[in-house]
Write a protein that binds this DNA or RNA. Structure first.
Lengths: 127, 127
DNA sequence: CAAGTAACTCTGTTTTTCGAAGTTACATGT
DNA sequence: ACATGTAACTTCGAAAAACAGAGTTACTTG
């Protein structure tokens, strides 16, 4: 998605260097990919929580209120697979596992800040 | 979520003017609210698609590839309820309905642009 | 008047997400 | 020594969400 490159008349397009050359304006492959992750329950919140610092499984579960063990486990595996977070085992004793944002995970944070600021202004509360 | 206000030692916090006064760093109520919508399948993509201009139900369904009628219908109702999009009926004939971003919906777009840019760089493809 | 399009809704099936319990490994208290 | 506790998960059956596809109503076009 590129900042709308205003066309002559009201017909705005998204087309940029790398996509959506067709005149149909339904693309934005990158956004679709982003929401392949973020469009799943909890992913965004987990990422946002990890912005506060790394934490272990049990700790994360406490910080992300309402998530279940199995879903937390699934999400961590997905995010890890996508390279957004890093799982590291500190081989104790006691052994402990901790999850933290990776380089690309950290690169997401500016967008998260904006999202959060937007929500603060535009989603009053009681949805 | 606020840009991390570095604390003395490694303990970063998110606490800002309006939330998370407690020392537990698991808050960010605004982000959680944002993902109450965006964390559902299709919501983000629908919003991103509407950034290209308003469109009717059938048109949207074509532009958001893969969505089903019933889910599109649900999402439009939700987004409308939250005031992110506006449904307007142009009473023809032929009568037609069209959906467009509202003021707050448009306010989300800068965050979407960032998200998209991030995905373009950090989510190569084939997930 | 037959066919098509828009905008949905309804129904039944598949996929996700859920809470709760179970597992393995180590640590601590008594 | 042994019961208890914590961390890190996995497994299971049930509830909720998403899906595909058929049906509905209203209006237009050939």
């Amino acid at each position: 998605m590129n900042p709308p490159p205003k066309t002559a008349a009201g017909t705005r397009t998204l087309s940029g260097p790398a996509g959506c050359e067709e005149s149909l304006r339904h693309c934005d492959a990158a956004l679709v990919r982003a929401f392949g992750f973020l469009g799943k329950r909890w992913s965004g919140v987990i990422l946002g929580t990890l912005a506060n610092g790394e934490s272990g499984f049990a700790d994360l579960k406490r910080r992300v209120e309402g998530i279940s063990d199995s879903v937390l486990s699934d999400r961590l595996a997905e995010l890890q697979g996508a390279g957004l977070i890093v799982r590291s085992v500190e081989s104790g004793p006691p052994v402990s596992v901790s999850y933290a944002l990776s380089e690309s995970g950290r690169a997401l944070m500016p967008a998260m800040f904006e999202l959060s600021a937007w929500a603060a202004k535009n989603l009053p509360d009681a949805r």
